Measured scan of single mutants.
Amino acid sequence: TFTSYQLEELEKVFQKTHYPDVYAREQLAMRTDLTEARVQVWFQNRRA
């Protein structure tokens, strides 16, 4: 599960791009204290 802060950050990036590159995902992962893999999976699920 994600915190409301994490979801907010993820959604913010999703609004800009549905396909963030690895750099964007790593920045987001650091900001949200998630792994890059978790961020990647979240985007895959969000796009589905």
Results as ranks from 00 to 15, higher is better:
48 A>F: 09
16 K>A: 12
42 W>N: 01
9 E>F: 05
18 H>S: 10
21 D>E: 10
33 D>H: 14
5 Y>P: 04
40 Q>A: 12
45 N>D: 12
22 V>N: 09
8 E>T: 10
12 K>N: 06
19 Y>L: 03
16 K>R: 10
43 F>S: 00
47 R>M: 05
32 T>E: 02
3 T>V: 04
21 D>W: 02
47 R>P: 03
15 Q>C: 06
28 L>V: 08
22 V>S: 12
42 W>V: 09
40 Q>E: 15
21 D>R: 03
9 E>I: 06
11 E>S: 03
24 A>I: 13
34 L>K: 01
31 R>C: 06
39 V>D: 00
12 K>Y: 05
38 R>L: 15
22 V>E: 14
1 T>M: 10
34 L>Q: 03
47 R>F: 03
24 A>C: 09
43 F>V: 01
2 F>S: 11
33 D>P: 05
32 T>S: 04
21 D>V: 03
10 L>T: 01
16 K>M: 13
14 F>W: 15
21 D>L: 03
26 E>H: 12
38 R>T: 14
2 F>D: 01
19 Y>F: 13
12 K>E: 08
9 E>D: 03
23 Y>H: 12
47 R>V: 08
44 Q>T: 09
12 K>A: 13
16 K>L: 14
26 E>R: 15
40 Q>L: 12
34 L>E: 01
41 V>N: 13
2 F>H: 03
15 Q>L: 12
33 D>G: 15
6 Q>L: 02
7 L>E: 10
4 S>V: 14
6 Q>G: 01
25 R>N: 03
4 S>H: 14
23 Y>Q: 10
37 A>H: 12
37 A>Y: 14
15 Q>F: 07
44 Q>P: 03
23 Y>R: 15
12 K>C: 05
4 S>R: 13
40 Q>T: 13
42 W>P: 01
23 Y>A: 12
41 V>Y: 15
11 E>P: 01
11 E>M: 13
25 R>V: 15
14 F>N: 05
44 Q>N: 08
25 R>Q: 06
16 K>P: 04
35 T>I: 03
28 L>N: 00
25 R>I: 15
14 F>E: 00
33 D>N: 15
17 T>W: 07
3 T>D: 06
8 E>W: 08
21 D>K: 04
7 L>N: 09
45 N>S: 10
47 R>E: 03
28 L>I: 09
42 W>S: 06
39 V>F: 01
43 F>T: 00
44 Q>E: 15
15 Q>E: 12
30 M>N: 13
2 F>Q: 02
31 R>W: 07
13 V>L: 15
19 Y>P: 14
22 V>H: 13
24 A>L: 14
41 V>I: 14
3 T>Q: 06
33 D>R: 11
7 L>A: 08
13 V>P: 02
8 E>F: 09
38 R>I: 15
38 R>K: 13
36 E>T: 09
21 D>T: 08
6 Q>C: 03
14 F>S: 00
32 T>W: 15
8 E>Q: 12
19 Y>H: 08
10 L>G: 00
12 K>R: 12
30 M>Y: 13
21 D>Q: 04
18 H>K: 12
2 F>E: 02
21 D>P: 06
14 F>I: 08
26 E>G: 08
33 D>S: 13
5 Y>R: 09
37 A>R: 13
34 L>R: 00
31 R>N: 07
20 P>R: 01
39 V>M: 06
37 A>K: 09
35 T>H: 05
